[in-house]
Design a binder for these strands. Sequence first.
DNA 1: CCCCACACTGGAAACGTTTCCAAACGAACC
DNA 2: GGTTCGTTTGGAAACGTTTCCAGTGTGGGG
Lengths: 343, 343
Amino acid sequence: MSSSRATLIQVAERAGVSLASTSRALHGTGASPAMVERVRAAAAELGYSADATGRSLRMKRTFQVAFAVADIGNPVYVEMLTAIHEVLAPHGYRVVVMSTGHTVASTVDLVRSLGSGFVDGLIVSPLRTDDALVEAIRQAPVPVVVIGRSLEKQGIDSVSTDSAAGIGQAVAHLVEIGRRRIGFVNGPLDTTPGAARQRGFDAATSSPAFAGDHAETERADDFTVAAGLAAGRRLLSRDPEAGPFDAVVAANDLLAIGVIRAAGELGLSVPRDVAVTGMDDTEIGRVFQPSLTSVSLGSAERGRAAAQLVLDRVGDVVEPAQQIAIGPHLAVRESTAQEESAR
Amino acid sequence: MSSSRATLIQVAERAGVSLASTSRALHGTGASPAMVERVRAAAAELGYSADATGRSLRMKRTFQVAFAVADIGNPVYVEMLTAIHEVLAPHGYRVVVMSTGHTVASTVDLVRSLGSGFVDGLIVSPLRTDDALVEAIRQAPVPVVVIGRSLEKQGIDSVSTDSAAGIGQAVAHLVEIGRRRIGFVNGPLDTTPGAARQRGFDAATSSPAFAGDHAETERADDFTVAAGLAAGRRLLSRDPEAGPFDAVVAANDLLAIGVIRAAGELGLSVPRDVAVTGMDDTEIGRVFQPSLTSVSLGSAERGRAAAQLVLDRVGDVVEPAQQIAIGPHLAVRESTAQEESAR
DNA sequence: CCCCACACTGGAAACGTTTCCAAACGAACC
DNA sequence: GGTTCGTTTGGAAACGTTTCCAGTGTGGGG
């Protein structure tokens, strides 16, 4: 916290050569070995390291990428952040964390703020999307990659997953292990994931393979454990004519954990009485007791893909918008173990 | 992703006034109302927003703060990050996430990299500390706040907690509910938290209040669930003369969860047979079954305090290094419920 | 009626870097 | 030995902003 930093000019003076040569010598190209040696020595003596701001101004590159989500604490986003950082850091890019806020309007503001050019690209995972946001993204002065639903028609780079199909996989798995009366605990329908997952559940339970079986939905206020607990209580207290639920599909690992707790309160054993599936395949679900069967949406993989996409874009590759899709896959664990293997 | 952005010069031309006046009009000070109006209009028409890089270069302020930890995925750090972001964002500061790596050397490198001035301050929570790191921090060209142990003697701003005392609280609580044979599952001793927690356990179990009771330590390879599971198995399979363990203090929530799983495997019920405490009071522990009694070290609070400290420092307040201490406190939950209230 | 103080404006410098351009130098070829 | 080419070097501009300084104009007070 002292000693104002050395500048390139000072290095040049110390080495007794011109500013231009100094820059070249340090940066590496077009300088004689003698010059490089000389400048390096001077730089080392002064403890010089190039000022990022000056360089950014000249090069029109900040070497920063922003990652924006509504809630940085959400395990899914944490996993993405980690993956993004892992991809970007080796390329010399820093990651700036930002919050989209919970409304579309605040997300639009965020995208607009890119106008001040503090970042070379943005990876954003919006909870809700509308035309204004799409338009703002299209107008953005730097590459923007959306993690969420595919925005192919809109001509925007996106990394998506098919969470509807993922819910289908969960339902298929439950049917396969003999469950017939399946409840669905979903989050708010006005969010992109909420809507998609509802579609997935409705489609799966109206398919021929499900014919004759029973399905109902209960909606939680939020994608949290607390909301899942409340919704789980409501759902499992219902008394369908077809008989009690023997399985619950949750739209989320956190909701699933809430549901499992609700089941416990009501004296139901998981998975014996009720099998439960989650979605996102988070660490918290993996270590839970019983460990949670969950549909992985490849959070880390999506993060990596998005980061790579930004990297490509920043490299001036002007191509049509790319759509990358990461397929969901089911990780089967204790919460849906076959009856005989459950202790 | 189009239209090269408008510059202040263009706004000035459009408004038909000088560059200087334009800047003043937008920035707010010393311009006539008419001028402000005129410039504002021009800026709006051009969709102007000031370039962060140019401004940074001139003002010698990046309006960015870095937060560096070994593992961004760790729930404790996520909580800190969230808190830091909440404090900094309203002040117009962006948060850059960085990784310290797992060695002291790489942390030193990171601190040195501050020399390139891409950030106005740094909040770092190093797993391990040595003289080289302390020296690097002292030499750093921007304010650095350390979250971890107190660095008062070294004259470095720090936000610390007394995790040793925290372990003491856990032990006291266990003694209070009648547990007499307490095991301790700790992480690596060569980390700052590992060392402190061991000290805390040793102190607590050698105090008069503990006289006559039994204590043993088992060391996990890491602060993870998997390591906790392995260590838990080892510890609980021991057969002390004093009788089987009726409580385990874990240095960490993740370790605690591993221990609980190990107990389950060995047919031991928590909390009836073995009470278990964790540390950090993470969400994952709160929602676990049984919910985890845990020593809160105030992660969010520490994050907030550190952010505030950086903010003060950036505001040129040159004062002696500050030490902020956040007291630990115990959150009692199901994993140490009294025998009679356990179902 | 003159002068002074004040509010406002414009010119220009500065922040630290990279890179374009021209000049200088040496070597190689005819 | 003169010309040409290629390599290396230095001067200077540029990136976009804020702010110092001097200058202009207006108002009011003497």
